[in-house]
Amino acid sequence: MSLSGVLNQLLQSLLVVAAAPLLMGWVNQCRAWLANRRGPGILQPYRTLHKLFHKDAALAEGASWLFRVNPYIQLGAMVLAASLVPMLAVDLPLAPAADVIALVGVFAVARVFASLAAMDIGTAFGSLGARREMFVGALAEPALLILFFNFSLVSHSTSLTTIVQTLAHQQFVLHASLAFAAVAFVMVLLAENARIPVDNPATHLELTMIHEALILEYSARHLALIEWAVAIKLFVYFAIGIACFLPWGIAQAGDWAAVPLATGLLLGKMALAGAGLAVVETVNAKLRLFRAPEFLATAFLLAMLGLLLHFVLQV
C-alpha cells in the first residue's frame, strides 16, 4: 500500500461525498429544463441537506434502534461502495478488499436495512414500500451480477480495478458483448436508483411509490443522511458505468500528473450521464408496477446474451 494510493483513496471518497448532491441537483435541473421549467438550481440538494440538518428529528412512536441506526448504515454502505469503484486512478488500497460481487453485496446490505427499518415502524406505507423494494431488488440483482460477469470474461477478473485496467490501458478492442451489458446496465441503474420507468423519485404522493414509501417516516438529520446516501448511490452507479464502459482518461497508478485531468474528465462524463438520465426520464412514462419484472427480466436476458455472444465472437 503506497502513500499515493492512500491519498488517491481519500481524495476520491471526499470527492464522491461532496459532489454527489451536486449530481442530484444537476439531474433535477436538467429534468426541469426538459419540462420547460426554470428549476431550483443545481445547488438545491445542498440547501435541502443544510435545512434538514438544522431541524429537530421526530421519531415515530414505537421506533426501535433499527430505525435510528438505519440512516447511518445507508450512508456508511454507500460511502464504502464509493471507495471500491476506481474513479480517478486505478490504485485504490481498499479495492482488493472487495470485487464486483462484494460490491453488489454492499448494495444488498443497504437494501435489507432500508426495508427492515421501513417495516420497523409498522405503518402500511412502510411495509408496502419494503416489499416493493425487495421485489425490484431481487430482480435487479441477478441482472447486475450477470452483466458484471461479462466484464469478468473480458478481463479474466472480478475485481473492478483490474477490469478498468484492462479496458482503459491496454490495446483498444471493441467488445460486442459489452454493448449488451451496457443496455442491461442502464436498465438496472434505473431500477436500482428508483428512477422513472420503475419508480418516480419526484413524488411521495403516489400509491405506486417505492423508494419514497420506505423513507416516509424519516425527518431532519435522519432524512438528510438518507437523501445524501441516495445521491451517493446514484453517483456510484454512474461511476461504475463510467469505469466499465467509458474508462478512458482514468489515471495510471502513481501518475499524479494525470489526476487533475482525470477529475475533470470524470466530472464531464458525470454531467453528460446526468443529462442523459434526465432525457431518459423525460421521454419515458412510469411503468405499471407489475411491468417491472418484465423490464428487469429483459435486462437479465440482455446480460445473458452478452455472455453467449462473448463465446461466439471469441474476442
Binding site: 490495446q171 460486442a176 454493448a179 440482455l302 446474451l305
Partner: peptide
C-alpha cells in the same frame, strides 16, 4: 486475440443487429 479493428467493428454491428432484434 488481436483481430483487426474493422473486424471488431463488424462484430459489434452484428451484435447491435441482434440487440435490436431482441
Amino acid at each position: 486475440m488481436a483481430i483487426p479493428f474493422s473486424w471488431q467493428l463488424i462484430n459489434l454491428l452484428a451484435a447491435l443487429l441482434l440487440l435490436i432484434a431482441f
